[in-house]
Amino acid sequence: MEKQATINLEQQFQDRVDQDIRIEPKDWMPEKYRQTLIRQISQHAHSEIVGMLPEGNWITRAPSLRRKATLIAKVQDEAGHGLYLYSAAETLGISRAEMIDQLHTGKAKYSSIFNYPTLTWADIGAIGWLVDGAAIMNQVPLCRTSYGPYARAMVRICKEESFHQRQGFEILLTLSRGTEAQKAMCQDAINRWWWPSIMMFGPADDASPHTAQSMKWKIKRFTNDELRQKFVDICAEQVKILGMELPDPELKWNAERGHYDFGKINWEEFWQVISGNGPCNKERIAARVKAHEEGAWVREAAISFANKRAQKQRPAVA
């Protein structure tokens, strides 16, 4: 009887998803759907927060006042994205504190791209163009994802991300028209960020175990390989405007497919970085833990102060 009831609920749930009716926090949902979303949204939130670090690395060294201001604003936007996403995940029954704890203990993942170092100013441009570009490619379909709070958070995030991407491209464009040293800096950053960026779409479809279920639930709308191909096609054209090259000798227009062919991705590197062996994994988490621990007394003081004030305002009981 109970089992039958669950099957009916699941059927009704799937029907709503199939009709593109948004799932809202109070609606019944399969436990696995909830867990998948918590994993994906919190991972996304963590990526925003950890992503503040490699870019923040250049705030104090930005080469002009205008660049400094835009970079601060950009990193600040990412903190804002983290906030909306943590809030969206909280509607699924997990607290921000729990999620942050999962990040700090390594239980939760974040986008591996942020485990690469930002070595020159051009990296700030390359992150904007390539990393934010890949993120947008992943995120635009999420504005139509089946879970309402996530979809709504993504609408706002995507607007800001596309602004960031244009800023990044503009940084590279300026470098590409600059001195020889600046041009070299630009090409070097593209060389280092290209492959990690196209890895951002995740493993190839035949190695992505969750894709089918996520597509059925309309959490995902396109497969990893579809999005990756779309991204390669766009970047292969945009790089020409910069007068630079993508570091892939096999990159070539394939008229028959109507797409660019590209070289083989080094999946060994991808899995190594995911499993903690990227150049900056330990530093990134250490920086987050440090900020959290050093902020503990501040958060405690704020709570203690709020409690004292609340007590003062409470009328004395006779």
Partner: peptide, 20 residues
């Protein structure tokens, strides 16, 4: 701006960055 990304919580990270 040295606080950006290292604030005591997200809300205050945003606030101090805004002031910067």
């Amino acid at each position: 701006s040295e606080w950006t990304g290292h604030g005591p919580n997200l809300e205050q990270d945003i606030a101090i960055s805004n002031i910067a």
